[in-house]
Write a protein that binds this DNA or RNA. Structure first.
Lengths: 150, 150
DNA sequence: TCGCAGAGTGGGAAAAAGTGGGAAATCTAG
DNA sequence: CTAGATTTCCCACTTTTTCCCACTCTGCGA
């Protein structure tokens, strides 16, 4: 399981160093092969085998449903294969950096079987939104959440 | 599986360079032969064998059904055979370029067994639509999507 | 406190990919 | 049959990518 948040920097060539503590696990799981794709506002980073499972699920969705089609289009469409280089870095394609507005400072957030990669500014904006929503009590939670005990 | 987004440029002669990482696969699958046809807003690029399968399916559709007829007409009608040249480029027929409003800057989007080719401006418009819909909570998702865990 | 080791960062050079243009070949129309 | 136009093929230049090396920084132990 990947956990924890790390500040990371993307250098001028678009390279991103994966924090060392994850490298061994990634090496084991997929021989250093990762797939990076887009979410609404951030990028998602999967070990190759985990991605392949997701991809299978996506492809099985009904392709005439516009929302499903769009999800396929974006997630599979942007998915890019990368391999860790000799220093444990991966190259973020320009298209991905543009999509997620990632310039230099970013946050790598462990999320179980994947990572999220956020532009620093967007992330803090998101924190603000979260706190605001809590304030104004925007809480029509789905039943699964209602009964969740933390 | 083809995946990933690439910025590509169509030169003044209408030629499009297929990114190298796909070439080997295309060479194996169809000896460099591709079929390019139209979708509603973009072009579709299939390896020849995959296209032939699609074509068979299309032709078997009930030809009295107006929507099916139209799909046949456009997809089969515009389908054009191309071969990779010595530098891995293909020639986009003028009719196809006009149909999809592809002028110079375009995006090649891997979608499993095929590619989509979008005019750059149209594609970013599509991204905007996606983000908007998500915002406004247009969520009559099909059950397959509701329960999808990424 | 100093120095060493591991991690992170930046940059240079070789190689590969992308791009554009020209010449030869083919086609079309008069 | 010929002249013009279009297509096809190939070559050369430019840009990007990739690989590798070197320097810096931080944290830990001596």
């Amino acid at each position: 399981m990947f956990r924890g948040a790390n500040k990371v920097t993307v250098d001028s060539k678009g390279r991103l160093a994966i924090p060392t503590r994850y490298r061994e696990r990634i090496g084991q799981r997929s021989d250093g092969q990762l797939v990076i794709t887009v979410d609404r506002q951030c990028l998602l980073i999967y070990p190759l085998p985990d991605w392949e499972e997701i991809e299978r699920k996506l492809i099985r969705l009904p392709s005439l449903h516009p929302q499903a089609r769009r999800l396929q289009q974006f997630m599979v469409g942007y998915a890019s294969d990368v391999t860790l280089d000799s220093h444990g870095r991966v190259l973020l394609a320009k298209e991905l950096r543009e999509f997620a507005a990632i310039d230099r400072q970013a946050l790598l957030i462990g999320q179980g079987n994947k990572f999220e990669l956020w532009d620093e500014a967007r992330w803090s904006q998101r924190i603000d939104e979260w706190l605001e929503d809590e304030q104004t009590g925007e809480s029509d939670l789905p039943p699964e959440l209602e009964s969740l005990s933390l």
